[in-house]
Amino acid sequence: MKKKKTNWLITSLLLIGTLLILFPLYLTINIALKTPQEMGEPLLSLPNEWRFQNFLDAIELTNFYSAFLNSFIVTFCVVVLTVLTNSLVSYAIARNMHKGFYKALFYYFVSAMFVPFPIIMLPLVRQTAVWNMDNLVGLIFLYIVFQLSFNVFIYVGYIKSIPIELEEAAVMDGASSWKIFWKVIFPLLSPMNATVAILTALYAWNDFLLPLVILTDPSDATLPLTQYIFQSEFSTNYNLAFASYLLAMLPMIIVYIVAQRWIIGNVTRGAVK
């Protein structure tokens, strides 16, 4: 195959486009490093002196470490449990689709994708409180359950494409269904697991509505919810507010910078499947 020459026109257009993407982030960093007095000057000008005190103040005011820990625990547990449980359920369904019960289950889960969240929001708020689940544990359960519809849909499609012969050899050796799943199927699902894990992590980390309505104790607040709660205290101190926004986005940005190839690669692969 011959190597085509670089299309510089498109390259430069795309480079210009990145300015649109990066500009809000530049503005955020810029303002987070300024003093309130400098806000009178043009907003784009660089800070006279980098003021890291804003970050320290924001950490103290918003209880950053506690919110970070809450977000981290929720995201970590949700990702691990979602991948483990959702793939397992999908495996059982995919291998029994010829049976009415499992076929019905499949449609039961998948049809829930059409249910808009607001309709279950009002009763859910009350129900989780009655069950004493208006806390991080409840939040974790809800994320796992809400992801199930979509994940069953994509896992089942993927598992069906795995030849059943691979399992039959293991059955001959007398392995149980559980063992077959862990030893044979689960490793084969790795690409799908990665895709699901990434999408789940992004959802659980950034979600705002569910923590807003479910969590009762302010000390359970996750990072996005914290930004909302402290809106009023930031008032017009935009420097403090933007330092806090930046801190809240930073963990995800760092993970992304380190793992962007892997992340995009897996999302792309998931899409093709």
């Binding site: 993407i21 980390w205 950034n206 705002f208 986005m249």
Partner: peptide, 14 residues
């Protein structure tokens, strides 16, 4: 590609 995907990882609220 990495830059164009960046907004997707950020919290909509923020």
């Amino acid at each position: 590609r990495a830059i164009y995907f960046l907004p997707n990882i950020l919290s909509i609220l923020i």
